[in-house]
Every structure is written in structure tokens, then in C-alpha cells.
Amino acid sequence: MITEATRARFAREVAKYPPERKQSAVMACLSIVQQEEGYVSQESEAVIAEVLEMPEIAVHEVTTFYNMYNQQPVGRFKLAVCTNLPCQLRGGKEALHHLEERLKVHMGETTVDGMFTLQQCECLGACADAPVMLVNDRDMCSFMSNERLDQLVDALRTEGGQ
């Protein structure tokens, strides 16, 4: 369930908008629950709807419209690799394929140990750093040659194994 600490984080977002416009904080609140719980459950949507005084269905519409909300649980580390054209010209697709082989999954899938979910994504706004990827929505990793991808996977495995 949503803790007091989470509610305090919500309140900080709500305070940015006029008092009668709490709904504006919905995207931030959804990303907060995703950070804390790994995905947006129906239960979280209901709590956010109550806090922001908006219909549950309106919260759900937001969850489903934006690409980065996880509507299902994902692996411990969500890796999203950009393959849009500017990145494709600098090895974005190869980076995705390298991870597919290394993690033994296809894009869109989660490894059997639940450690990694691999996705393809659209422009991250970091095209000159290609190949680029996003880890758990919040951390950009740049210049991801195959060697650096291997280092990253190893480092995350060690971290996640603890």
C-alpha cells in the first residue's frame, strides 16, 4: 500500500499547481509509484485518483497513453534501447541485438530470473551519445559499445544479486 512517505512525495508535486488543478500532478504521481513498486497497479491508480480527486478511469487513460508507464510488473532492471534513425546510424540496433543475445531474450521480454526486461524505444533526446539506453526510466547510459553493454549487464547482475 501507499506509505506516508509516498504521500508526501505526491504532496510536493500537487503543490506546483493551482489548488483546483490537482489533476496536473497525475503524471508525476504515477512515475513515483512506478519507481517505488516497479509498475502501476490498478490499486495505485485508485489511490492516486482519490488523492487527486479525479475519476479512476482518467488516471488509467494517462497510464495507458504514455509509453513509459509499466502496466505490468517488469524485471528488476528495465533496459530501453533507442533504435530511432539517428541512433540506428550509430549502432543502436546492434546494441539492442547484442543485449538480446547476451540476455537470451527478445525485445519486449523479461529474463527468466526476473532480472532484466529489454525494450526498444524511440528518441531519448540524446542522439549524439548513441548508442544510448535508459535504465529503469531514470538513468541514461551513453556510448554503449558492446564492451560497455557487457560491463553494464555484469554490474547490474552483481548489484541485483545482492
Binding site: 538513468d139 541514461m140 551513453s142 560497455r148 553494464l152 554490474a155 547490474l156
Partner: peptide, 16 residues
């Protein structure tokens, strides 16, 4: 912890 692990993979702006 995760931030520390990912630090070596961050772009610092030197190239761009």
C-alpha cells in the same frame, strides 16, 4: 547504489 553502479556509463557533456 544503483546510481553509483551506473555512474561510469553517464555522458559528461565533453563530446557534445
Amino acid at each position: 547504489n544503483l546510481k553509483d553502479v551506473l555512474q561510469p556509463f553517464k555522458a559528461g557533456g565533453q563530446q557534445t
